[in-house]
Amino acid sequence: MSTPNAHYGFAERWLPRLVLAPSFLLTLVFLYGFIAWNGYLSFTNSRLLPNYEWAGLVQYATLFENERWWVAVRNLGIFAVLFIGGAMAIGITLAILLDQKVRGEGAIRTLYLYPMALSFVVTGTAWKWMLNPGLGLEKLMHDWGFTSFTFDWLVNSEMSIYTVVIAGLWQSSGFVMALFLAGLRGVDDSIIKAAQIDGATLPRIYWKIILPALRPVVFSTLMILSHIAIKSFDLVMALTGGGPGFSSDLPATYMYSMAFTRGQTGLGAASAMMMLATVAAIVVPYLYSELRKDSHG
């Protein structure tokens, strides 16, 4: 190893770069290239197909006057807060409970993680049937004799976004649980034992010692959940189709219908840029703090 070989040195220097070059190039073109293209389109008057005449901020002005866009933004706010908060809360609780060395842990863990194996389209369709007043839960309750029971969120334009939250939570809570369980298992036993000797109660140990030690897990989970929330599209399409009316629209479904079904490519591009800005607002500070840490460490 220590005897330097000319060929080996060359390979060592160039091989990694050579191997990484194709994926670097692909990312450059298909990610950043297309972001730039979309950014340009958002400043044009593109209708059915892209057109490259500069039109300034017209599309953004139209977007901000559009009521449907604000419904989508409000829905994203509701969905993101409840979905991220809910999935974290349920996931952490499940992980802590499973961490108590219960019997049959393996089987239970698999059971909770299983929804993650399904695509959002399957989840959405299944929940659509369960929440449909004439097919699912409400009908079941009526058949059992509870005729005053109503659960019509799916067809109620004020509540429809919450059905998306329910289905999203069902899908993702198990995944959050798995992440936290792995984190919990990684906490050094001796710290916990020391705390126990000092007379700390179990909830206190979790709250004050273990969870703070899991900060990196919390951060990466937050990152994953928030990008799922912002780009959420298939779940809404399968579950409510954005309806009733457009009451459960999210920015992603809004962008799709403007750009692809309404012949308003420019407006769609503008809404996509707003989504990108939202993601960037979350990711950039995070990356910044991470990279700074790296250069110091």
């Binding site: 449907r68 334009s157 309806g243 009733p244 009316g245 457009f246 009451s247 309404r262 012949g263 308003q264």
Partner: peptide
């Protein structure tokens, strides 16, 4: 109507029906 106009009118009608 052009598709953009038609879409916007769709939105108004469907919103009224559901709200």
């Amino acid at each position: 109507m052009k598709s953009a106009t038609q879409g916007a009118v769709y939105d108004a009608v469907t919103q009224f029906w559901n709200d």
